[in-house]
Design a protein around this nucleic acid. Structure first.
Length: 256
DNA sequence: ATGGCATGAGTATCATGA
């Protein structure tokens, strides 16, 4: 099976692209979406179900919103981080064929001196604490999503330019390492990868054409899943579409 | 260069993103 994550930056705008992408990638068993920006009553459930998918989603107006689209029935759906009071809709988890899928839209943080940055670090701490317990319950666990963290300088097109900015700060990178410290492994880094492979490019300044991007969308795998992972790729083709999302899908292949 | 796009809410601009 393949599992994937894609920040679509409005599912209303990107729904045709998502359906096309799922049709073009039939090996993808589950696709995690972020920034759907839709209240639940406006989620295009019928469109996905008519195309044969099972869906789990939670969203809000204008901002955030996450969903899992799967080819088989999703079970054990959990919304938000249990025990963490949060107005924002940024996390949904579900089980598919014995694999626990956690779909997360980690806060951006805006800037290092922002309240949103403090919220980002609190959110990450709560996520890490919850996942520690979740990993005991579910040895086959994947955390997929928009992390809004470039884990290392090689994940940044111009590390000097980005120094002191959100997404690359030492605290955020330490929070990412706290996740890998639970035993989770970055699927992308399990394999040899081309230099300067990114998952996000700013809409402004021809960033995609210049490949001025960041790798901030990730799939982390529990030890048992990492063992079965045979590949991980970023599908930058989607960024060439008309009205593209600024993020590209990340896809991991799992055996069995 | 605190802009540069894009999206949504709402109908002029503003908040947010990364």
């Amino acid at each position: 099976m393949k599992i994937a994550t894609w920040n679509v930056n409005s599912l209303k705008v990107r729904l045709p692209q998502v359906l096309d992408w799922l049709a073009a990638n039939p090996e993808v068993s589950a696709l995690c979406l972020q920034e759907t920006k839709l209240e639940d009553r406006n989620f295009p459930r019928a469109e996905f179900e008519q195309a044969g998918f099972s869906v789990a989603y939670v969203g809000q107006k204008t901002y955030n919103g996450v969903a899992i689209i799967a080819r088989e029935t999703l079970g054990e759906v959990v919304v938000n981080i249990p025990g963490f009071v949060d107005e924002q809709k940024r996390l949904i988890a579900a089980t598919l064929g014995g694999v626990r899928l956690v779909c997360a839209y980690i806060p951006n943080g805006q800037s290092l001196d922002s309240d949103k940055y403090a919220y980002k670090l609190e959110w990450l701490a709560a996520l890490t604490a919850w996942l520690k317990a979740e990993l005991v319950r579910y040895p086959k666990l994947a955390l997929l999503g928009d992390y809004n963290i470039a884990p290392e300088d090689r994940d940044v097109h111009d590390p000097v330019k980005w120094e002191g900015m959100v997404l690359v700060s030492p605290e955020e990178r330490a929070a990412f390492r706290a996740l890998t410290g639970l035993g989770l492994q970055d699927a992308f880094r399990l394999f040899e990868q081309p230099q300067k492979t990114f998952s996000w490019w700013d809409y402004r300044g021809f960033s995609f054409q210049k490949n001025a991007g960041l790798r901030i969308d990730h799939i982390l795998l529990s030890p048992e899943l990492a063992q079965s992972c045979t590949g991980c790729e970023i599908d930058r083709q989607t960024r060439k579409h008309e009205r593209p999302s600024d993020h590209a899908p990340v896809v991991a292949t799992l055996k069995n």
